[in-house]
């Protein structure tokens, strides 16, 4: 049984046709990066979903943790002036 030797997990990112950034679509197992790209082609682009594939070994991804939610995101809560709707521009000025 080869379970000690399980193929590592890869996270798959795909860029679609329309110029948007690569987007995470899911994950898969593969022995190495080359194989991960080939498998990603078969698993995640069977219907022309993409024109470019990135693969990243899942173990290499560092992620923020849910407990940090407060300290990470709260600082932007009281900075409403970062949104354009904060400012009232008179109608006669026209579109801005």
């Amino acid at each position: 049984m080869s379970t000690q030797n399980e193929w590592p997990l890869w996270e798959i990112f795909i860029r679609g046709q329309h110029g948007l950034s690569h987007r995470h679509v899911g994950s898969l197992h593969a022995a190495d990066a080359e194989m991960a790209i080939k498998n990603a082609r078969d698993v995640y682009t069977r219907r022309n979903e993409g024109v470019s594939i990135w693969v990243v070994e899942a173990a290499q991804i560092a992620a923020s943790s849910p407990e940090e939610k407060g300290s990470l995101y709260e600082p932007s809560n009281d900075k409403v002036y970062r949104h354009p709707t904060f400012f009232d521009i008179p109608d006669e000025v026209g579109a801005m």
Partner: peptide, 24 residues
């Protein structure tokens, strides 16, 4: 049939995020 293989893979990966391995 190839799609069904894909469905299996999407779901195994979803289960793996809960801390079980694919081989298990």
């Amino acid at each position: 049939v190839q799609d069904e293989a894909g469905h299996g893979l999407y779901l195994y990966c979803a289960a793996e995020t809960l801390g079980v391995t694919r081989d298990q």
